[in-house]
């Protein structure tokens, strides 16, 4: 599909203010709706997962709304999606929390998004999960290879209200290609079971 453009203009407020999804600064930022689709089942690196999820609904979230702002050399991305049955935390064996991630090609230009990159073309990700406390910065060279970095400067806040999650993820600002992935906890989605943008979109800072 055609790449859409997400533009991060300079914000009037501080990054700290923008970490609230309800901050006034977000009101006038342009919104881009990115369509999502389920990660292909045949790409899952486990025959068990392929068998157990054949015929089950995957990729429950069909689209996300994305806004972007720049403040103090940092990029803040506000991601919103409808979640009628939110999962705020993991509080049982069979409960999975809602989550989202922003993906970037590690070299800034090219990588396979549906497989979370490959050995020679990795992706990086900013990952937020409801109830987890801190976000994760991760790199991946294919499904099942996500590696979290112990040290990173990411910040995140997530709120659920009026039937939707609003998550702000903030990190170093730069223009790049981006993708988004969302996991619906109520649908049992985790790991490679998720919905994601099938191709890269353009993020322009400034």
């Amino acid at each position: 599909m055609t790449a859409l453009r997400v533009t991060a203009k300079k914000a009037s407020g501080t990054l700290q203010e923008l970490l609230s999804p309800r901050a006034a600064g977000w009101k006038d930022a342009p919104e881009v709706v990115l369509p999502l689709q389920p990660t292909p089942l045949e790409a899952q690196p486990s025959a068990y997962v392929q068998k157990a999820w054949a015929g089950r609904q995957r990729g429950a979230i069909a689209s996300v709304s994305v806004k972007a702002l720049a403040a103090g050399g940092q990029l803040a991305l506000r991601i919103e999606w409808a979640a009628a049955e939110p999962r705020h935390t993991i509080n049982d064996n069979d409960v999975f929390a809602d989550a989202c991630a922003v993906l970037f090609p590690a070299d800034g230009t090219d990588a396979e998004i549906a497989t979370m990159g490959s050995a020679d073309k990795p992706v990086t990700a900013w990952y937020w999960r409801a109830g987890a406390g801190a976000p994760n910065f991760a790199t991946a060279k294919g499904l099942g290879t996500v590696s979290r970095e112990a040290k990173h400067a990411l910040k995140a806040t997530g709120e659920w209200q009026s039937g939707s999650w609003q998550v702000v993820l903030a990190g170093p600002a730069r223009s790049a290609k981006i993708g988004v992935a969302v996991w619906s906890g109520a649908s049992g989605e985790r790991a490679g079971l998720k919905s994601h943008t099938p191709s890269w979109h353009d993020l322009k800072v400034g």
Binding site: Y48, K51, A52, D92, N93, D94
Partner: peptide
């Protein structure tokens, strides 16, 4: 030899 789908029961069942 094909995987059988399984369930991880909730903690009240343990």
């Amino acid at each position: 030899g094909e995987p059988r789908p399984g369930v991880f029961p909730g903690k009240r069942l343990w």
